[in-house]
Amino acid sequence: MSVQELEKIFQDRIDSEIRIEPRDWMPDAYRKTLIRQISQHAHSEIVGMLPEANWITRAPSLRRKATLIAKVQDEAGHGLYLYSAAETLNISREEMIAQLHSGKAKYSSIFNYPTLTWADMGAIGWLVDGAAIMNQVPLCRASYGPYARAMVRICKEESFHQRQGFEILLTLSRGSADQRRMCQDAINRWWWPSVMMFGPNDESSPHSAQSMAWKIKRFSNDELRQRFVDICAEQVKLLGMTLPDPELSWNEEKQHYDFGAIDWDEFWNVVNGNGPCNKERLAARVQAHEDGAWVREAALAYAGKKRQEKDAA
């Protein structure tokens, strides 16, 4: 069969919502796009553990400590599910991690912002996880089977994260003057980076059309962003706080919120490595990996010895 014929069969399957599985024929560009997207997503989960792990040892109550550990641990799990999904596309986890450490692979820029107060644990849960869920739910129907299945599992686990975050903010919003100030400050710092999590505007998002055709992507960046703003603009009222956007206002005609212009210079600045914590985040990942090398090697050596002993017996 010619490549054109194979591509036609492939696209027909996608159009009729039949999932693509690992051993099926797929265009090389589809495979590469998936590897890029899934590994980037996995890296985001792993790097995303760091800003929150930063507060595990300072969590203000035993209940908060336990739930924060459980949440950061879930992120490790999510990274693991996603690396596994990518591994079905003939790339090893080790290779993907090497790409992360060399700076070749990207991760979500949101994790290059610092967590400065306890309220950031709330703001991350509410806004960052909220934006992530908005992005992730449609991916449960992604055309690539292993990716879609990983996303189903992730979305199931993710729902407690956002609730946990909102609960933290709600408690602060009902607390002392300092706590309320902390709460508003965190919302102020996390709002715009969260809005940016949906990526560039549709007109400047080059890969989107192809990803839509391949059903790796189901909604455009701007569609999802609008949905996110609409939901948060209402939820913030329950906190008695405000979103840091003077132009935010309900548009009766459109039945959506209007919001201010995004500072894309800041967005690209952070993407290109100049955010407040880019270097620290990557350095922490590299160090964990390097410090763990002797452990991984020893476990393998031990397993090899035991296998030999068994074979000899």
């Binding site: 792993i46 553990m49 760091l50 929150e52 792990a53 595990i56 040892t57 035993l62 400590k65 336990a66 550990i69 459980a70 950061v72 641990q73 490790a76 799990g77 990274g79 693991l80 690396y83 922490a284 160090q287 964990a288 990996h289 410090d291 763990g292 090398a293 452990v295 991984r296």
Partner: peptide, 24 residues
């Protein structure tokens, strides 16, 4: 729990976090 996010491999990061959670 100081290890959470810094373990030698993801699987073991998760394992030790589980023990931390049990103890807490």
């Amino acid at each position: 729990s100081e290890w959470t996010g810094h373990g030698p491999i993801l699987e073991q990061d998760i394992a030790l976090s589980n023990i931390a959670l049990d103890l807490i």
